Computed example of a mutant assay.
Amino acid sequence: MGKGLLGKRIAIGGSRKTEEISTLIKKQGGVPVVRSLQGTVFLADKQVEPDLRRFVEEQADWVIFTTGIGTETLVDLAEKIGVKEPFLTTLRGAKIACRGYKTFATLKKMDMIPAAVDEDGTTGGLIRSLEAYGFSGKRVMVQLHGEKAPSLMTFLKEKGASVLPILPYRHIPPEPETVDLLCRELMDRKLDAVCFTTAVQVRSLFDFAREKGCINQIKDAFKEDVLASAVGKVTAEALREEGISRLLAPDIERMGAMIIELSRFYEAQPEN
């Protein structure tokens, strides 16, 4: 096993599987520090039910799914409240778009073939796949997962669509003390890298920094000394949207691959 992270302090932005990620970092010689930027995700049944019923009653011209688990959750919830068949009928009567291979696979199991699919697993790729279609006056239901995908929502509204967002999951904000500590560590250059495992974690950090007036210092830290590491394309896209271009993202979207990629990066540095 390589030791590319020898002596490197690596912050973990996730709240799940932190022990697993910490073990991977230690095996590479690094020092893991957990700085959770994402609270617990919970199913918001009662909050989602009115929107789901509204969708079934009013129907839609387009339905956009952004995650496989979110797609499955809406089907399960529709069954739970007794509207599964009307829900599926409404889906079959609409054009469908989706982001991500897991979402595509979930829809395929339901015998639904999307009219528009991203080419790279990102929200930007999904938007590009939708640019050829007209949305003026169209009703669009968008399944979101944890965050509100502002670029997608803005695109649809600017195209003249009437948008109904449905979020089957919510994220509890992280502890302010934790984010504040991470910001200070970044500004003081006490970290070598930060591992982000969801786009939500990226938003949590940068929104907090903007609110506290230290956004420029945080961006400078990532540009100069601290490496941002993303578990996959969607998380990397969120970092780029915040102006962070110096980042790593593995081709295989797994936590283990992210840590190995990080280790290889440091092994290739002249000082190593």
Results as ranks from 00 to 15, higher is better:
Leu6Gln: 13
Leu182Trp: 05
Lys148Tyr: 12
Leu43Ser: 10
Gly70Ser: 08
Ala257Tyr: 05
Leu247Asn: 06
Glu147Pro: 00
Ile244Glu: 02
Phe87Ser: 05
Val163Asp: 07
Val33Asn: 03
Pro165Ser: 02
Gly7Pro: 12
Asp220Glu: 13
Gln217Thr: 00
Ser229Met: 14
Phe222Pro: 01
Glu242Gln: 14
Pro174His: 01
Thr89Phe: 11
Arg240Gly: 00
Glu242Gly: 01
Met187Leu: 11
Ile166Phe: 08
Lys148Glu: 15
His171Ile: 08
Val140Arg: 04
Lys212Asn: 03
Phe65Tyr: 13
Tyr266Met: 07
Val200Arg: 08
Lys157Pro: 00
Lys190Leu: 07
Gln59Met: 10
Thr67Met: 07
Arg53Met: 13
Ala209Arg: 04
Val75Asp: 09
Lys159Thr: 01
Phe135Trp: 12
Phe222Tyr: 04
Glu267Ser: 10
Arg170Gly: 02
Glu185Pro: 00
Val56Cys: 14
Lys27Gln: 15
Val56Asn: 13
Leu262Cys: 10
Lys223Leu: 08
Pro114Glu: 07
Gly124Tyr: 08
Tyr133Ala: 10
Gly39Glu: 02
Ala11Pro: 09
Ala116Asn: 07
Thr40Phe: 14
Ala161Gly: 02
Arg16Asn: 14
Glu267Cys: 07
Asp120Val: 05
Lys109Tyr: 03
His145Val: 03
Pro114Met: 08
Thr71His: 09
Pro50Val: 06
Ser22Pro: 12
Asp192Met: 06
Asp207Val: 07
Phe222Ile: 01
Gly7Asp: 13
